[in-house]
Amino acid sequence: MIRVFVIILMATGLLATQPASAGPEKDLQAMQDFYQKRFPNVAPEEFANGLYAFDEGARAQWLELEDFPPYEIAVEEGEAYFNTPFANGNSYADCFENNGLSIKQNYPYFDNDTSKVVTLELAINQCREENGEQPLPYLRGELTAISAYMAYTSRGNTINVQVPNDNPKALAAYDAGKQFYYSRRGQLNFSCSSCHVQVVGLSLRADPISTTVGQVTHFPAYRTVWGEIVTLHRRFVECNSQVRARPFESQSDEYRNLEYFLTYMSNGFELNGPSSRR
Protein backbone atom coordinates (compact mmCIF):
# COMPACT_ATOMS: atom_id res chain seq x y z
CA MET A 1 0.00 0.00 0.00
CA ILE A 2 2.85 2.37 0.90
CA ARG A 3 4.33 2.08 -2.58
CA VAL A 4 1.05 3.21 -4.05
CA PHE A 5 1.11 6.28 -1.83
CA VAL A 6 4.51 7.23 -3.14
CA ILE A 7 3.30 7.13 -6.72
CA ILE A 8 0.26 9.22 -5.95
CA LEU A 9 2.35 11.64 -3.92
CA MET A 10 4.58 12.39 -6.86
CA ALA A 11 1.53 13.37 -8.86
CA THR A 12 0.08 15.82 -6.38
CA GLY A 13 1.39 18.87 -4.62
CA LEU A 14 -1.25 21.07 -3.08
CA LEU A 15 -0.89 21.98 0.62
CA ALA A 16 1.93 19.47 0.78
CA THR A 17 4.28 21.66 2.65
CA GLN A 18 3.48 23.58 5.75
CA PRO A 19 1.59 26.79 4.97
CA ALA A 20 3.24 29.93 6.32
CA SER A 21 2.14 30.77 9.84
CA ALA A 22 -1.02 32.79 9.54
CA GLY A 23 -2.57 31.95 12.89
CA PRO A 24 -4.90 29.12 13.84
CA GLU A 25 -8.08 30.68 12.48
CA LYS A 26 -6.61 31.20 9.04
CA ASP A 27 -5.04 27.72 9.08
CA LEU A 28 -8.42 26.20 9.81
CA GLN A 29 -10.12 28.21 7.09
CA ALA A 30 -7.45 27.21 4.55
CA MET A 31 -7.75 23.56 5.51
CA GLN A 32 -11.56 23.63 5.25
CA ASP A 33 -11.40 25.42 1.89
CA PHE A 34 -8.92 22.89 0.58
CA TYR A 35 -11.15 19.89 1.33
CA GLN A 36 -14.26 21.68 0.13
CA LYS A 37 -12.60 22.29 -3.21
CA ARG A 38 -11.17 18.81 -3.34
CA PHE A 39 -14.50 17.17 -2.55
CA PRO A 40 -17.21 19.54 -3.80
CA ASN A 41 -19.84 16.79 -3.61
CA VAL A 42 -19.19 15.78 -0.03
CA ALA A 43 -21.11 17.68 2.65
CA PRO A 44 -18.51 19.18 5.03
CA GLU A 45 -20.01 17.54 8.14
CA GLU A 46 -19.39 14.17 6.45
CA PHE A 47 -15.66 14.55 7.14
CA ALA A 48 -16.44 13.61 10.73
CA ASN A 49 -17.11 10.10 9.43
CA GLY A 50 -13.52 9.65 8.32
CA LEU A 51 -12.88 7.22 5.51
CA TYR A 52 -16.60 6.34 5.46
CA ALA A 53 -17.28 9.69 3.82
CA PHE A 54 -15.64 8.24 0.71
CA ASP A 55 -16.16 4.50 0.54
CA GLU A 56 -19.79 3.42 0.05
CA GLY A 57 -19.17 -0.28 0.58
CA ALA A 58 -17.22 0.21 3.78
CA ARG A 59 -19.77 2.75 4.92
CA ALA A 60 -22.67 0.29 4.65
CA GLN A 61 -20.80 -2.17 6.89
CA TRP A 62 -19.92 0.57 9.33
CA LEU A 63 -23.58 1.62 9.55
CA GLU A 64 -24.52 -1.95 10.37
CA LEU A 65 -21.96 -1.98 13.17
CA GLU A 66 -23.19 1.36 14.47
CA ASP A 67 -26.67 -0.13 14.78
CA PHE A 68 -25.44 -1.97 17.88
CA PRO A 69 -21.80 -1.01 18.21
CA PRO A 70 -19.26 -2.99 20.24
CA TYR A 71 -17.98 0.20 21.89
CA GLU A 72 -21.14 0.36 23.99
CA ILE A 73 -19.48 -2.24 26.16
CA ALA A 74 -16.55 0.10 26.85
CA VAL A 75 -18.89 3.04 27.46
CA GLU A 76 -20.78 1.04 30.04
CA GLU A 77 -17.61 -0.18 31.72
CA GLY A 78 -16.28 3.37 31.65
CA GLU A 79 -19.40 4.65 33.37
CA ALA A 80 -18.97 2.11 36.16
CA TYR A 81 -15.29 3.06 36.65
CA PHE A 82 -16.18 6.74 36.51
CA ASN A 83 -18.74 6.36 39.28
CA THR A 84 -16.55 4.26 41.56
CA PRO A 85 -15.18 6.47 44.33
CA PHE A 86 -11.44 6.62 45.08
CA ALA A 87 -10.07 5.30 48.38
CA ASN A 88 -10.32 8.82 49.83
CA GLY A 89 -14.04 9.01 49.06
CA ASN A 90 -13.73 11.52 46.23
CA SER A 91 -14.53 10.60 42.66
CA TYR A 92 -13.76 11.66 39.10
CA ALA A 93 -16.78 13.95 39.12
CA ASP A 94 -15.08 16.10 41.78
CA CYS A 95 -12.13 16.86 39.50
CA PHE A 96 -14.03 18.24 36.51
CA GLU A 97 -16.39 21.00 35.56
CA ASN A 98 -20.03 19.94 35.36
CA ASN A 99 -19.13 16.75 37.27
CA GLY A 100 -17.16 15.56 34.25
CA LEU A 101 -20.21 15.16 32.05
CA SER A 102 -20.63 16.75 28.63
CA ILE A 103 -17.24 18.51 28.72
CA LYS A 104 -15.05 16.80 26.12
CA GLN A 105 -15.49 19.65 23.63
CA ASN A 106 -13.17 21.75 25.82
CA TYR A 107 -10.25 19.35 25.49
CA PRO A 108 -7.41 19.63 24.86
CA TYR A 109 -6.71 23.03 26.35
CA PHE A 110 -3.55 24.98 27.07
CA ASP A 111 -2.80 25.18 30.76
CA ASN A 112 -1.02 28.40 31.67
CA ASP A 113 0.26 27.14 35.01
CA THR A 114 2.23 24.28 33.53
CA SER A 115 2.59 25.81 30.05
CA LYS A 116 1.45 22.51 28.58
CA VAL A 117 -1.44 21.13 26.62
CA VAL A 118 -3.85 19.12 28.77
CA THR A 119 -5.76 16.31 27.07
CA LEU A 120 -8.77 14.59 28.57
CA GLU A 121 -6.82 11.39 29.21
CA LEU A 122 -4.09 13.33 30.96
CA ALA A 123 -6.69 15.13 33.09
CA ILE A 124 -8.21 11.78 34.09
CA ASN A 125 -4.86 10.56 35.36
CA GLN A 126 -4.12 13.90 37.05
CA CYS A 127 -7.42 13.51 38.85
CA ARG A 128 -6.38 10.08 40.08
CA GLU A 129 -2.99 11.28 41.26
CA GLU A 130 -4.48 14.28 43.07
CA ASN A 131 -6.62 11.78 44.93
CA GLY A 132 -3.79 9.46 45.85
CA GLU A 133 -4.47 6.84 43.18
CA GLN A 134 -1.97 5.32 40.75
CA PRO A 135 -2.20 6.67 37.19
CA LEU A 136 -3.66 4.22 34.68
CA PRO A 137 -1.83 2.99 31.57
CA TYR A 138 -2.71 5.09 28.55
CA LEU A 139 -2.96 2.72 25.65
CA ARG A 140 -5.89 0.51 26.54
CA GLY A 141 -8.20 -0.67 29.25
CA GLU A 142 -9.72 1.26 32.12
CA LEU A 143 -8.52 4.75 31.16
CA THR A 144 -9.73 4.39 27.59
CA ALA A 145 -13.10 3.18 28.86
CA ILE A 146 -13.45 6.20 31.18
CA SER A 147 -12.51 8.49 28.31
CA ALA A 148 -15.07 6.71 26.10
CA TYR A 149 -17.78 7.27 28.68
CA MET A 150 -16.89 10.96 29.02
CA ALA A 151 -16.89 11.31 25.23
CA TYR A 152 -20.27 9.62 25.07
CA THR A 153 -21.80 12.08 27.51
CA SER A 154 -20.46 14.87 25.28
CA ARG A 155 -22.02 13.66 22.03
CA GLY A 156 -23.55 16.41 19.98
CA ASN A 157 -21.48 19.17 21.61
CA THR A 158 -19.45 21.35 19.27
CA ILE A 159 -15.66 21.11 19.45
CA ASN A 160 -14.32 24.41 20.58
CA VAL A 161 -10.58 24.30 21.20
CA GLN A 162 -9.12 27.67 22.16
CA VAL A 163 -5.74 28.96 21.06
CA PRO A 164 -5.81 32.47 22.48
CA ASN A 165 -4.13 34.95 20.13
CA ASP A 166 -2.72 36.88 23.05
CA ASN A 167 -1.08 33.81 24.56
CA PRO A 168 2.27 33.25 22.88
CA LYS A 169 2.92 30.02 24.77
CA ALA A 170 -0.37 28.50 23.67
CA LEU A 171 0.33 29.62 20.13
CA ALA A 172 3.78 28.05 20.33
CA ALA A 173 2.25 24.72 21.41
CA TYR A 174 -0.21 24.89 18.52
CA ASP A 175 2.61 25.74 16.11
CA ALA A 176 4.67 22.82 17.40
CA GLY A 177 1.72 20.51 16.71
CA LYS A 178 1.31 21.95 13.25
CA GLN A 179 5.01 21.62 12.59
CA PHE A 180 4.79 17.97 13.62
CA TYR A 181 1.90 17.45 11.21
CA TYR A 182 3.86 18.73 8.23
CA SER A 183 7.27 17.25 9.11
CA ARG A 184 8.46 14.32 7.09
CA ARG A 185 9.77 11.45 9.14
CA GLY A 186 10.56 7.78 9.10
CA GLN A 187 12.31 5.63 6.55
CA LEU A 188 9.55 6.49 4.10
CA ASN A 189 9.90 10.19 4.72
CA PHE A 190 6.18 10.91 5.00
CA SER A 191 4.45 13.62 6.97
CA CYS A 192 0.94 13.30 8.32
CA SER A 193 -0.15 15.64 5.56
CA SER A 194 1.47 13.45 2.89
CA CYS A 195 -1.34 10.99 3.45
CA HIS A 196 -4.22 12.88 5.04
CA VAL A 197 -3.98 15.97 2.84
CA GLN A 198 -2.31 14.90 -0.37
CA VAL A 199 -3.72 11.43 -1.01
CA VAL A 200 -6.87 11.92 1.04
CA GLY A 201 -10.12 10.30 -0.04
CA LEU A 202 -10.68 7.33 -2.23
CA SER A 203 -8.03 6.26 -4.68
CA LEU A 204 -8.36 3.23 -6.89
CA ARG A 205 -5.22 1.58 -5.67
CA ALA A 206 -5.03 2.31 -1.97
CA ASP A 207 -7.21 2.30 1.13
CA PRO A 208 -9.43 5.35 1.56
CA ILE A 209 -7.96 8.01 3.84
CA SER A 210 -9.70 10.43 6.19
CA THR A 211 -9.44 14.22 6.08
CA THR A 212 -7.59 16.28 8.67
CA VAL A 213 -10.73 18.26 9.42
CA GLY A 214 -13.26 16.27 11.44
CA GLN A 215 -10.70 13.56 12.13
CA VAL A 216 -10.80 13.52 15.91
CA THR A 217 -14.53 13.88 16.58
CA HIS A 218 -15.08 10.24 17.44
CA PHE A 219 -12.19 9.29 19.74
CA PRO A 220 -11.63 7.09 21.59
CA ALA A 221 -12.49 4.81 18.68
CA TYR A 222 -13.25 1.08 18.52
CA ARG A 223 -10.85 -0.48 16.02
CA THR A 224 -12.45 -3.57 14.56
CA VAL A 225 -9.01 -4.76 13.47
CA TRP A 226 -7.85 -4.81 17.08
CA GLY A 227 -11.23 -5.58 18.59
CA GLU A 228 -10.80 -2.88 21.21
CA ILE A 229 -11.31 0.76 21.88
CA VAL A 230 -8.22 2.95 21.54
CA THR A 231 -7.14 6.52 22.23
CA LEU A 232 -6.15 9.14 19.68
CA HIS A 233 -2.51 8.80 20.72
CA ARG A 234 -2.55 5.08 20.00
CA ARG A 235 -3.67 6.02 16.48
CA PHE A 236 -0.78 8.49 16.25
CA VAL A 237 1.58 5.67 17.24
CA GLU A 238 0.22 3.51 14.46
CA CYS A 239 0.41 6.24 11.83
CA ASN A 240 4.00 6.99 12.82
CA SER A 241 4.93 3.31 12.76
CA GLN A 242 3.35 2.83 9.33
CA VAL A 243 6.03 5.01 7.77
CA ARG A 244 8.65 3.31 9.94
CA ALA A 245 9.17 6.36 12.08
CA ARG A 246 9.85 6.03 15.80
CA PRO A 247 6.55 6.63 17.56
CA PHE A 248 6.39 8.87 20.63
CA GLU A 249 4.99 7.99 24.03
CA SER A 250 1.29 8.49 24.65
CA GLN A 251 0.79 11.89 26.30
CA SER A 252 4.31 13.01 25.36
CA ASP A 253 4.62 16.75 24.73
CA GLU A 254 4.88 15.98 21.02
CA TYR A 255 1.58 14.11 20.85
CA ARG A 256 -0.18 16.56 23.14
CA ASN A 257 0.81 19.45 20.88
CA LEU A 258 -0.20 17.41 17.86
CA GLU A 259 -3.59 16.71 19.43
CA TYR A 260 -3.95 20.45 20.13
CA PHE A 261 -3.38 21.31 16.47
CA LEU A 262 -5.41 18.42 15.10
CA THR A 263 -8.39 19.04 17.39
CA TYR A 264 -8.35 22.71 16.45
CA MET A 265 -8.72 21.51 12.85
CA SER A 266 -12.03 19.92 13.97
CA ASN A 267 -13.37 23.07 15.61
CA GLY A 268 -17.01 23.53 14.68
CA PHE A 269 -17.67 19.80 14.32
CA GLU A 270 -20.01 17.96 16.65
CA LEU A 271 -18.50 15.30 18.87
CA ASN A 272 -19.78 11.86 17.83
CA GLY A 273 -17.59 9.54 19.83
CA PRO A 274 -17.00 6.86 20.44
CA SER A 275 -17.37 5.43 16.97
CA SER A 276 -15.99 2.40 15.20
CA ARG A 277 -13.35 2.28 12.50
CA ARG A 278 -11.73 -0.62 10.70
Binding site: A43, N49, R155, E270, N272, S275
Partner: peptide
Protein backbone atom coordinates in the same frame (compact mmCIF):
# COMPACT_ATOMS: atom_id res chain seq x y z
CA UNK B 1 -23.93 11.55 0.39
CA UNK B 2 -26.13 13.00 3.08
CA UNK B 3 -26.81 11.10 6.25
CA UNK B 4 -28.82 11.64 9.37
CA UNK B 5 -26.20 12.89 11.74
CA UNK B 6 -28.45 12.48 14.70
CA UNK B 7 -28.11 8.76 14.21
CA UNK B 8 -24.55 8.95 15.43
CA UNK B 9 -25.06 11.25 18.31
CA UNK B 10 -28.14 9.66 19.78
Amino acid sequence: MKIDRRFFIR
